[in-house]
Write a protein that binds this DNA or RNA. Structure first.
Lengths: 128, 128
DNA sequence: GACTTAATTGCAACTTAGTTGCATTTGCAT
DNA sequence: ATGCAAATGCAACTAAGTTGCAATTAAGTC
């Protein structure tokens, strides 16, 4: 996927900040918070939040609140759920859960919370 | 359901603040934030947060972050999903979605985001 | 390529949900 | 009733996210 593809047809400028940000989101393959981003690229938080907000308006990224009080942003790729681990706070994309229906409602996002595979095994090792 | 039932067997005191809080949660039938609570009962926010945190430890309530940056708390009643409307920020309990499974993971909570019935109808009225 | 202008940026000050330290109060067991 | 740990209210704090503003930059026009 190309950065230019994401931006073209949208009514926003392709600045260097936006290019860096979108490249990072594409590379990450999982939603990122400002905390995650600021270690990788030098960018003021105001710029970050204004840009992800604009990306969201343009349906380039979507976002959700996690359990750690932070908001996570990721490139919008077809409908898929997110799993948030309540033990280690990790976030994973879940491709297998899709097209959920609820009469009269429009479902745009599904968030699952619980204990992830790693933390589950750590607490209940299969060979003990 | 009785307040005393919720507290008994747990290692916490039944103070008047806790009684009021649990009564409110039981009456509300939907998750509440501190904002919701503070209009109904006089209670310092430190007391609120310390108590809901204790209730959560004792599995009396559970909680989740909504889209409005606030955390919502409700009496824990069997597994059910929550629907958060991205338009009007309302929160509803969804009893119909239950026992979701994901190999290797433990799912403790399901949050659906989208457009609720009311907002859906407002934008796409059936008779027009 | 230089010119123009609106959009974008960084900075610093601000907002607000939630947390923490501490002195006072309260529930509850003896 | 007494003693004491747990709970409360207050005020000060923390940190994610927002906003106003002056300086900078992308991108269209000549």
């Amino acid at each position: 996927m190309q950065i230019e593809k994401l931006i073209e047809e949208k009514k926003i400028k392709l600045t260097s900040a936006r290019k860096e940000l979108l490249e990072l989101f594409l590379k990450a393959q999982r939603p990122l918070s400002y905390e995650d981003v600021k270690d990788k690229i030098k960018m003021d938080k105001a710029t970050f939040y204004r840009n992800v907000s604009k990306f969201e308006e343009e349906s380039i990224v979507n976002s959700f609140e996690s359990n750690d009080k932070k908001r996570y942003y990721g490139i919008y790729v077809s409908a898929h759920a997110h799993f948030i681990c309540q033990v280690c706070s990790s976030i994973e994309c879940v491709k297998s859960i899709t097209n959920m229906q609820l009469e009269g409602y429009k479902i745009q996002d599904v968030i699952l919370k619980g204990v992830c595979k790693q933390c589950n095994q750590r607490n209940n090792p299969p060979s003990s």
